[in-house]
């Protein structure tokens, strides 16, 4: 390849616009020819220096001001920004309330039971107490422990739970699973249920196709128990400590 042709190629090669075949030929020539190599290196050097040189050309405050004034941008910027932020905040809050009130449908008990998204897996007594709205002590869960129920999953594993819906998934050594759900105070199941009064607390319990359920209101929440294999009575017996808190006695729930 001759110098005249290489010179034509140098520019395109610098911009990665030359074909691979021509680039290889040009590079081979440049490596041999000191004059072409000098041209190539000067082009590269100039490009680097030009980039640095042009970086000093900046926008003056005067130009910025003129543009803002001509287009009315500065006024818009300061006038609208707080308005936009305020409008967005109201919109988000409003949407949040609207969504909470209208769009969040109370899920079916069995869906809750099988939905891991609601699960709160923990043996942290303080966390459970806060969530249940009851002052639970370790001894209140003794029946669970005696019944060989252990937290499902890792010890002290916490996950954020929904403001309105919480779920503690437990299973015993036989693999029987029970879901202890925390629902809004005004929760009412659409399923047909029986009622039992236990120490002044109305417990609703019943059976659907594949599972048994029991729920009652306690403090500002509704607590529900769901299980595939345990009967409502078994569940209520297990839930005794939660229902009666410190008022729990054997006599109170044995008659259920």
């Amino acid at each position: 390849m001759k110098c005249a042709r290489v010179e034509l190629y140098i520019s395109a090669m610098l911009d990665n616009e030359l074909s691979l075949k021509d680039s290889i030929e040009a590079i081979e020539h440049i490596e041999r020819c000191s004059a072409c190599k000098a041209k190539w290196e000067l082009n590269e050097e100039t490009r680097a220096k030009l980039q640095y040189y042009i970086s000093f050309v900046d926008v003056s405050n005067n130009l910025q001001h003129k543009i803002n004034k001509t287009l009315g941008l500065s006024k818009q910027q300061y006038y609208f920004k707080p308005l936009i932020i305020a409008a967005c905040t109201i919109l988000i809050l409003g949407l949040g309330l609207f969504v909470n009130d209208v769009f969040i449908q109370i899920p079916h008990l069995y869906k809750i039971h099988n939905n891991i998204d609601f699960q709160l897996i923990s043996n942290d007594i303080e966390l459970l107490s806060n969530h249940a709205g009851a002052n639970l002590q370790k001894q209140h869960l003794s029946n669970f422990e005696l019944a060989m129920f252990t937290p499902h999953g890792a010890v002290n594993f916490k996950r954020p739970f929904n403001k309105n819906y919480g779920l503690i998934a437990l299973k015993n050594d036989k693999g029987q699973r029970i879901s202890l759900c925390f629902l809004p105070k005004d929760y009412k199941s659409t399923l047909q249920s029986n009622k039992h009064e236990i120490n002044g607390i109305t417990v609703h319990h019943g059976q659907d196709k594949n599972y048994h359920f029991a729920y009652w209101q306690q403090n500002d929440k509704t607590i529900a128990l769901i299980s595939d294999s345990l009967t409502p009575v078994e569940m209520i017996n297990l839930a005794g400590p939660l229902i009666y808190e410190r008022r729990y006695t054997n006599e109170n729930y044995e008659g259920v």
């Binding site: 010179e7 520019s11 004059a35 000098a38 290196e41 000067l42 100039t46």
Partner: peptide, 28 residues
């Protein structure tokens, strides 16, 4: 672009720095 770079290179070559640079390039 080819002509622009050629012209720029020529103009730079006229300066002392560029001559010096080119001479270094030649030595290489």
């Amino acid at each position: 672009l080819h002509r622009a770079r050629q012209a720029l290179r020529m103009l730079l070559t006229q300066s002392g720095y560029s001559q010096e640079y080119l001479s270094i390039g030649t030595k290489l």
